[in-house]
Write a protein that binds this DNA or RNA. Sequence first.
DNA 1: CGGAACTGTGTACGATGCAAGCGGTTTTGG
DNA 2: CCAAAACCGCTTGCATCGTACACAGTTCCG
Lengths: 239, 239
Amino acid sequence: MSELEAPRAVRALWAGSSDAPRRGPKPAMSVPAIAEAAVTLADEQGLDAVSMSSVAKRLGFTAMSLYRYVDTKDDLLQVMLDRAYGPVTVATDPDADWRAAAGDWARALLGRCQAHPWVVDVRMSSPPLTPNSVAWMDAGLRALSGTGLPPQQVASSLLMVDSYVRSHVRLLKEYSPDGLAAWSTRLRGVIDPGATPAVWEALQAEVFDDAPADEPWPSDDFTFGLEIVLGGIQQLVDP
Amino acid sequence: MSELEAPRAVRALWAGSSDAPRRGPKPAMSVPAIAEAAVTLADEQGLDAVSMSSVAKRLGFTAMSLYRYVDTKDDLLQVMLDRAYGPVTVATDPDADWRAAAGDWARALLGRCQAHPWVVDVRMSSPPLTPNSVAWMDAGLRALSGTGLPPQQVASSLLMVDSYVRSHVRLLKEYSPDGLAAWSTRLRGVIDPGATPAVWEALQAEVFDDAPADEPWPSDDFTFGLEIVLGGIQQLVDP
DNA sequence: CGGAACTGTGTACGATGCAAGCGGTTTTGG
DNA sequence: CCAAAACCGCTTGCATCGTACACAGTTCCG
């Protein structure tokens, strides 16, 4: 039989601080405290700076002591994600327009992801199991249930919105203005105008350079792309 | 002055095999050969199995010898990506409908990404600089130039299509049927129906379980989501 | 022919994730 | 009430990783 239970650290998040009398010394740390330390560390120095020892050192303990709370580093990343998302920051009005509700949900999630941009760098093999992640999912499902679509399509639609938000965050990271400038100059030094004329023309048009403020690139209008996705979902609603 | 040139390995990809007479022994390896070995290794055992030593061992050399061709592991990942994408596998008909051309481009890219799913796990800090990557970009720009949109919007549109393809690949990986089944059973064991009713109902409706073949989840219809994105671009074309 | 440029290699270092075991502490059961 | 069990944080140790550095051998230029 394979392991059917969630990882220990994830179960700790669900259980909360149960002060049931247990044997042995009182734990000096807690899974949420570890998650908080790891998150602030990732916020300050990036995801690569998060190691067992660095997180432990920040808390004043040794690396190995963390393993009393978190079985593996992947589990640590999971609880970090849960902490980064935090509780759902958007109200749920069951009678609201589903499109407005979904938009609010997406913008709220975007805010959390922008506050902790490293979340999009965490490699996930399966969907998250942590309380806040599930709460976000629940809020998204509730928002999209207003479409009246069958459950499977509601879930699929939520997946599309969620994917769009994450893609946008990745875009903002990868195509940051300074990195973009260095990239375009490097690109100018290698490409062959004859082989890739469209890229060449784009470079000539200074598409990737610092654009005037009235025409920024990439389009920083998150709402624009979002409306495209929501419009696509609407096509499911109105046949 | 910051470094304005592309990394050595990337320049080697652009230069091709120039047999200009150079001093010292003939190189026993080459950047493309290294890339090929690393790619097949990633295909067979996953991206985590790709290390300097493992790639070198596959080629019959030591880890350090790779550094004569690739300055850092990040550069190795870049040339791996270039090899994974390969040359553009879609024809470009300048007179074709831009929507069909963009769709073909997206489906071709999807094929390459599915052949090497680890490509979406490579963390990128800036856009790729390698020949095949640029060639794919060029083909995408050419396909979308048929929209007649200004260059900035063409580039933004391509970014949206590209993001969608990558999101879809990530989705297929993360929500694979077997991982999904384990996830849903684990989820059943932790969630509180009162706190997250929508997730609970979705679980009751067996949304995430093995769905009947006539209603698979997540919707494996890549084209469906693609049409949404292309439809959004069309809204830019037809005001 | 001698040196310059370049090759692959061996060694070494710090960092990482983690397994195993240790002494000390607290609760529990007889 | 006390031994056993459960649990804490810590030390030690190991394999692996990326990579800096020095070295011996090879090839070409002057």
